[in-house]
Design a protein around this nucleic acid. Structure first.
Length: 643
RNA sequence: GCCGCAGUAGCUCAGUGGUAGAGCACACCCUUGGUAAGGGUGAGGCCGGGAGUUCGAUCCUCCCCUGCGGCACCA
């Protein structure tokens, strides 16, 4: 047998016979390492301890202290342990796949009866028994036909399908714990006892399509989370609780911003406070766009079928459109996008190259018949307002215009405190229209703009819209969740479908290129994100109710009204709370309602012309002269673009 | 759209095969209280909609609607 050289992380080299396993290497280094070892890293790949090494390699032995590989293994082994537990409890359940995901794992099962929440407890208990068995994990490489025969015998059709999808030259690995086995590419721990007993938890059951395909059978998925220790698990569960407290649907009710109801699924009833916030955002965006050279328009909500046929929506997106039934013989539809309307405005005049770039914006309300299961508070609705705009430009202007949109969008996100933004670039899909040349140009325009701006981005090959590539702007919020908001798309197609032209300097009629862009994306969605980002504690300039002036005793009522008047005169949204309630009660109520500033006034304040200032979330109060407070707050009320 | 769970007062939720209950919110009264719920009284419900089983359904069965958690989808 030939000799191979293995290089350890410290640079030392050791000679072994070809075919040595990392396990044997670990034992050779020290007996204790052999016991503690959980896996190895061979030439940068995560390896099982049992896989033979047959050439010179770099090798590192991993223990539970190596967090990344350890967590991956623990999660992966838990997936197997869970599948084994499920099959031991319900032998007729068929297994499918069980990958590691962020924070944990899931496993998809095919079972006639649904798993109940109580079942999760039963499964957890069984899993703990399996962990306590400390069953050694062993792996075998199987021949394809043997594996298929084995699964045919055991009536595991999903596994057979998986094997058939694995390329012929890849080894088929079978992993065993005790008498239970699973087809798996590994790696795995040495024995089930290496899984910590108390740092994981089964979370939920949900339906999931086999192979993610909605045409195939619905399986039952059990999700679990696992961490390196109990503290990490606890902090993850805390995180979930914190995230739940930020839920914009709950806060939207507490802050009396909006509600949703059965008569209009997926459409928002904006209350006065919510609509105030909505309008604040629009005012802000209007100023920013005006400065950036946009002109605002408004186009019809309901337009004739002919328009949607020209745009391509009628045949491609009919299922997602709201149609309007009328008493004449015409077919109408509610607009799902603003672009066709903007095409009509562009085409209404003969355009010169001197008019370009032409930037048409609209706070247009669009309706899309989203699948019922997709609806989610403000984040996924059926009617929403886009801060939409279309930029018509010449090919020469294209890159520059992309760059400008990118700058504008980042500057706007910054004003809202979102500085951690990443970009997805989706390139030409298989199913597309337009020439390869135009795709080359539009993809290059987006890339060049990003490169010039020094932005990093992730490319999603083949994920672009059928008419052009797109950028998507993803914000990371205060608790590290990602939200997709803005978009920038290059489109050679719509101008062509609508026969749009401009007259060039040499008098030729040429087709303009069109950019689709939205910065907030959907106002509804952006408000949902803002609420969750700030846990309801909106920045002062955005808060719909900025100040409540609360009387401590009724003798201060008159003074409170004066204070409110002074605040209003300074442009601050203020109201008086003169109700016959204790100050404790008022403070609590307005804190729950996320009012940023409470000014409490009693006899002392009346006499001294002061107010007692209490900021949301702070226990301390500060008594200041009324004029100082008005001045300070009116400064704070200034939108960031006007500061 | 698919799988599962749920729908009872404005909100959060309890409950039973014999047509309903709590807390908060609301109204009125007492209370003028110094920074996250003072006390009392009262009003408030087609128990999501429809059909069936039953002497009788909020409760059991079926269909539909809506919501929630996922999956799929997101031009």
């Amino acid at each position: 047998m030939s000799q191979i050289t293995l290089t350890l992380p410290d640079g030392s080299k050791r000679q072994y016979s070809s075919g040595i396993t990392p396990k044997a290497v670990a034992i050779d280094i020290s007996t204790s390492l052999g016991k503690k070892a959980i896996s190895s890293t061979v030439n940068g790949s995560h390896w099982d301890l049992q896989w033979p090494i047959d050439s010179d390699s770099n090798i590192a032995i991993n223990t539970v202290k190596d967090e990344q590989p350890a967590l991956e293994l623990v999660r992966h082994d838990l997936a197997h342990i869970m599948a084994r537990a499920v099959q031991e409890i319900w032998p007729d359940v068929k297994v499918t796949i069980g990958p590691v995901i962020e924070n944990g794992w899931y496993y998809d099962f095919d079972r006639r009866d649904p798993f109940t929440p109580e079942d999760l407890g039963i499964i957890e208990k069984k899993m703990k028994d399996i962990i306590n068995l400390c069953d050694p994990v062993r792996t075998e490489v199987w021949d394809r036909s043997a594996a298929i025969a084995y699964y045919e015998k055991n009536n595991e059709p999903y596994k057979i399908e998986l094997i058939e999808a694995i390329p012929g030259d890849e080894p088929l690995r079978m992993y065993w714990h005790g008498d239970w086995q699973d087809l798996c590419r590994g790696p795995h721990l040495q024995n089930t006892g290496q899984v910590p007993g108390d740092s994981w938890k089964l979370m939920s059951v949900a339906g999931a399509y086999w192979r993610g395909d909605s045409k195939r059978s619905m399986l039952q998925r059990i999700y679990g989370v696992a961490f390196k220790n109990k503290e990490d698990l606890r902090s993850h569960l805390n995180f979930l609780e914190e995230a739940a407290k930020r839920d914009h649907r709950k806060l939207g009710r507490a802050m009396n911003l909006f509600h949703l109801e059965e008569v209009a699924p997926g459409s928002v009833f904006w209350h006065p406070s919510g609509w105030c916030l909505f309008q604040n955002l629009i005012s802000y965006m209007r100023r920013r766009q005006e400065t950036a050279g946009y002109v605002e328009v408004n186009t019809p909500d309901i337009m004739d079928r002919a328009l949607w046929e020209t745009s391509g929506h009628w045949f491609n997106y009919m299922e997602n459109m709201f149609l309007a039934q009328t008493h004449d013989d015409r077919d109408y539809a509610l607009k799902p996008m603003n672009c066709p309307g903007h095409m009509m405005i562009y085409n209404e005049n003969i355009r010169s190259y001197r008019d370009l770039p032409m930037k048409i914006s609209e706070f247009g309300k669009v309706h899309r018949y989203e699948p019922s299961g997709a609806l989610h508070g403000l984040l996924r609705v059926r009617s929403f307002t886009q801060d939409d705009a279309h930029i018509y430009c010449t090919p020469e202007q294209l890159t520059d215009e992309c760059l400008k949109v990118n700058e504008l969008i980042l500057s706007i996100y910054k004003d809202f405190g979102f500085e951690d933004v990443h970009i997805k670039l989706s390139t030409r899909p298989e199913n597309r229209i337009g020439s390869d040349e135009s795709w080359d140009l539009s993809e290059a325009a987006l890339k060049t703009a990003l490169d010039r701006a020094g932005m990093s981005y992730t490319i999603f090959d083949g994920e672009g819209a059928f008419y052009g590539p797109k950028l998507e702007y993803v914000l990371r919020d205060a608790i590290k969740r990602d939200w997709q908001c803005g978009t920038l798309q290059v489109d050679y197609n719509l101008p062509e479908r609508f026969g749009s032209t401009f007259v060039s300097a040499s008098g030729e009629k040429l087709a303009p290129i069109m950019l689709h862009r939205a910065l907030f994306g959907s106002l509804e969605r952006f408000i949902g994100i803002l609420i969750e980002e700030h846990a309801g504690k909106l920045p002062f300039w955005l808060a719909p109710r900025q100040v409540v002036v609360a009387a401590i005793v009724s003798d201060a009522n008159e003074y409170c009204v004066e204070v409110v008047a002074a605040l209003k005169a300074a442009g601050i949204r203020a109201e008086a709370d003169l109700r016959n309630e204790k100050i404790n009660y008022k403070v609590r109520e307005h804190s729950v309602g996320k009012v940023p500033v409470i000014l409490a006034c009693g006899i002392r304040e009346v006499e001294e012309k002061t107010v007692s200032v209490r900021r949301l979330g702070e226990k301390q109060t500060k008594v200041s002269p009324i004029t100082d407070v008005v001045n300070a707050l009116s400064k704070e009320a200034m939108p960031p673009d006007l500061v």
